[in-house]
Simulated scan of single mutants.
Amino acid sequence: MRTPRTGGDPFQPQRREPPINLPPVVLAALAVLFAVFLLQEFVLGYATNMAIWQEFGFMPMRYARPLSGQDLAWLWSPFTYSLLHGGWSHIIFNAIWLAIFGAPVAKRLGPVRFLLLWATSAAASAFFFALTDWGAATVLIGASGVVSAYMGAACRFVFAGGRFLPQAHLGPRLSIGAVFADPTARAFVLVWLVGNLLVAVGVSFIGVSAADIAWQAHVGGFLFGFLAFPLFDVKTPRTLIF
């Protein structure tokens, strides 16, 4: 009588997947976001936090007047604003979506291009926000624009063949036309855009006032990630057979 094969040696210890299976660069990004937030929440005082938001948050008014050598925040604020958050719900919501969509993007691009996409998409979403609110003294903070860029980038490959997990990062890059030809990808993009357009006209979600949501940064980040993804996806992954 032949013993049926079980696919491995039963006496060898089975490999267990770690409870948190995120790329190191995503874990590092989450650690930095929470470290900055906890520092502001529990260590720094109100006046100091206000000064930090003004110095490191993005303000459209800085670009509507001649750049002054006395205020150099216009140099770094298009990037540093993405590391600041205004409350627990703000950072937790961004952290969840960063883990979901940042993970496949990081696995595909690697840590260097992942961080390069972070920096460029932060600037792109900030200036898209500035174009729609030019000259305003509003302070923009949060990683939502960057997270939206990772969502847009992920749409170019995670829905190929309907396989989102666990090997979605190996899928072929879809053209813009192919994304909208795929029912799942098309539905995701349309639902995401409609949700942000509803915020734009004043509809609030999950108890958060629409006036406090920078939908312009979301849209700007998503469009940047979706359209500019081929510039970062310089290596062609092996094609999955569906």
Results as ranks from 00 to 15, higher is better:
56 F>M: 08
64 A>S: 08
74 W>I: 06
76 W>T: 09
103 A>M: 07
56 F>Q: 00
41 E>D: 15
111 P>F: 06
88 W>V: 11
31 A>G: 15
80 T>E: 04
39 L>S: 12
107 K>E: 11
111 P>D: 04
97 W>S: 02
32 V>K: 09
73 A>H: 02
71 D>Y: 05
90 H>C: 02
48 T>N: 13
52 I>S: 02
61 M>V: 05
110 G>W: 03
63 Y>V: 09
103 A>C: 05
101 F>Y: 06
56 F>C: 04
12 Q>H: 10
33 L>K: 06
11 F>R: 06
117 L>H: 10
86 G>P: 02
81 Y>W: 00
112 V>E: 02
21 N>E: 14
105 V>Y: 06
106 A>W: 13
46 Y>M: 07
51 A>W: 13
90 H>Y: 08
28 A>D: 07
84 L>V: 00
22 L>G: 07
59 M>G: 02
91 I>V: 13
87 G>N: 06
73 A>G: 10
86 G>C: 06
111 P>N: 01
64 A>D: 00
34 F>E: 09
13 P>A: 15
70 Q>V: 05
66 P>Q: 08
68 S>L: 11
7 G>Y: 14
48 T>C: 05
15 R>T: 15
37 F>T: 12
21 N>D: 15
27 L>R: 05
63 Y>Q: 01
34 F>Q: 10
41 E>V: 12
74 W>D: 01
46 Y>P: 00
65 R>Y: 09
116 L>S: 14
120 T>G: 08
68 S>Q: 14
75 L>I: 10
83 L>V: 04
17 E>G: 11
67 L>Q: 05
11 F>G: 04
92 I>C: 11
14 Q>Y: 13
20 I>G: 05
